Amino acid sequence: KELVLVLYDYQEKSPREVTVKKGDILTLLNSTNKDAWKVEVDDRQGFIPAAYLKKL
């Protein structure tokens, strides 16, 4: 599985998104959309803007 590093805090703005903190390391589920990547956070799945993430 692929991991990503969170570069900036992000507060979810819709039910399809998830809230993350800078420095979190998350499982990347889908990065086919260049604008928003799907990740898993504490058994929740949701989207975060790709600009907030860096592949490890």
Rank of each mutant, 00 (worst) to 15 (best):
L53N: 00
N30P: 04
G46P: 03
D9E: 04
P49G: 03
S31A: 12
R16S: 14
D35W: 15
V4L: 03
P49E: 05
K1T: 12
K38N: 06
G46T: 11
L3S: 06
K1Y: 12
Y52D: 05
K38Q: 14
R44M: 07
T19M: 05
S14C: 10
N33Q: 10
I25T: 04
E40K: 10
A51R: 14
T27H: 10
T32Q: 13
P15H: 10
K1C: 14
I25N: 00
A51C: 15
D42K: 12
T19F: 05
P15W: 08
L29Y: 03
A51I: 13
E40V: 11
D42H: 12
L26I: 13
V18F: 14
L28C: 08
K55H: 08
D43K: 11
G46I: 15
K13M: 11
L29N: 02
V39C: 04
W37I: 02
S31W: 09
S14W: 09
D35P: 03
T27Y: 11
N30Q: 10
V39D: 00
L53D: 03
K54H: 12
E2C: 15
G23S: 02
G46N: 03
K55W: 07
W37M: 02
E17K: 05
V6L: 03
V41M: 10
V18G: 02
V4Y: 05
D9Y: 05
L53W: 00
L53K: 01
I25A: 00
L29H: 03
L26S: 02
D24I: 05
V20D: 00
D43F: 10
V39F: 02
P15V: 09
Q11Y: 14
W37N: 02
K55I: 14
K54Y: 10
I25P: 00
K38I: 15
L29Q: 02
E2D: 12
E2T: 12
Y10V: 02
D43M: 09
E40P: 01
E17T: 06
R44F: 09
D43G: 15
D24H: 06
L7P: 00
L56S: 02
K1I: 13
L56Y: 07
P49R: 03
Y10L: 01
F47R: 03
A51V: 11
S31H: 09
L28A: 02
G46D: 03
Q11T: 14
L53E: 04
V20T: 03
K34I: 11
Y52F: 13
K38V: 15
Y8T: 08
I48S: 02
D24F: 06
N33T: 08
K1M: 11
N30W: 06
D43N: 14
L26P: 01
L53G: 03
K1P: 13
T27I: 15
D43L: 09
N33V: 06
K38M: 15
T27S: 08
L7G: 00
S14T: 12
A36Y: 15
L53Y: 00
V6P: 02
P15L: 08
N30K: 06
K54R: 11
D35A: 10
I25R: 04
Y10M: 01
Q45I: 14
K1Q: 10
L29P: 00
K22I: 04
L5Q: 07
Y52N: 12
L56H: 04
K22G: 05
L29E: 02
V18C: 07
D42W: 08
P15C: 09
Q11M: 13
E12C: 14
K22W: 04
E2V: 13
A51E: 14
A36L: 15
G46W: 12
R16Q: 14
V6F: 00
T27L: 14
V18Q: 02
N33F: 11
V18M: 13
L5P: 00
I48C: 07
V18D: 01
E17V: 05
K34N: 12
Q11S: 12
V6Y: 00
E40C: 14
V18A: 04
K13E: 07
D24C: 09
E40Q: 15
A36T: 12
E40L: 14
G23M: 03
D9S: 07
D24M: 15
A50F: 03
I48F: 02
D43I: 06
L28G: 01
V39R: 00
L3Q: 10
P49D: 06
V4E: 01
G23C: 09
S31E: 11
V41R: 08
K34C: 14
L7W: 03
R44S: 06
V39Q: 01
K34V: 12
K38F: 15
Y8W: 12
K22M: 07
T32C: 14
E40S: 10
T27K: 13
D43T: 10
Q11C: 12
L3V: 07
I48H: 02
F47T: 08
F47C: 12
K1R: 14
A50L: 04
K22A: 13
G23Q: 03
T19G: 05
V6S: 01
L56E: 03
V39K: 01
T27F: 11
V6R: 00
A36K: 12
K34F: 09
K1E: 09
Y10Q: 01
S14Y: 10
I48W: 02
Y10E: 01
Y10R: 02
A51N: 13
Q11L: 12
L56D: 02
D35V: 10
K55R: 12
W37R: 00
Y8S: 10
Q45H: 09
N30G: 07
E40F: 06
R44I: 08
E2K: 10
E17A: 08
L26N: 01
V4P: 00
K38A: 10
I25W: 03
D24P: 00
K13Y: 05
Y52R: 05
L26C: 14
V41F: 10
I25Y: 04
R44D: 03
R44P: 01
V39L: 02
A50C: 10
K34L: 11
Q11R: 10
V41Y: 09
K38R: 11
K54V: 13
K13H: 08
K21T: 07
V4F: 02
S14Q: 08
R44H: 07
Y52C: 15
V18I: 15
D35Q: 10
R16C: 15
S14E: 09
E2Q: 14
F47A: 03
T27N: 08
D35F: 14
E17W: 09
P49V: 05
L28H: 01
Q45M: 10
K54F: 09
L5K: 05
I48G: 02
A50K: 09
G46C: 13
Q11I: 15
K22T: 05
R16W: 15
K54Q: 13
K55E: 07
G23T: 03
T27C: 11
D42E: 12
L7M: 09
K34W: 09
L53R: 01
A36I: 15
T19C: 06
E40R: 10
Q11E: 13
G23H: 04
Y8H: 13
K38W: 15
Q45N: 07
T19N: 06
S31P: 04
I48D: 04
K55P: 09
E12W: 10
L5C: 13
I25M: 05
Y8C: 15
D43S: 12
D42C: 11
K38S: 08
Q11K: 12
D9C: 05
S14R: 07
L3I: 07
L7T: 03
D42L: 11
T19E: 03
P49N: 06
P15Q: 09
P15E: 12
V39G: 00
T19S: 14
G46V: 15
W37S: 01
S14A: 09
N30R: 05
L28Y: 00
K38D: 04
L29S: 03
P49M: 04
I25Q: 03
Y10F: 07
I25H: 02
L28M: 03
K34T: 11
D35E: 13
I25S: 00
V6Q: 00
V4S: 01
K21L: 06
L26M: 04
D9N: 08
V4H: 00
A36D: 09
K55T: 07
W37E: 01
L7Q: 03
E17F: 08
K38H: 13
V4C: 11
Y52H: 12
V41C: 08
T19Q: 04
Q11P: 05
R16M: 14
F47E: 07
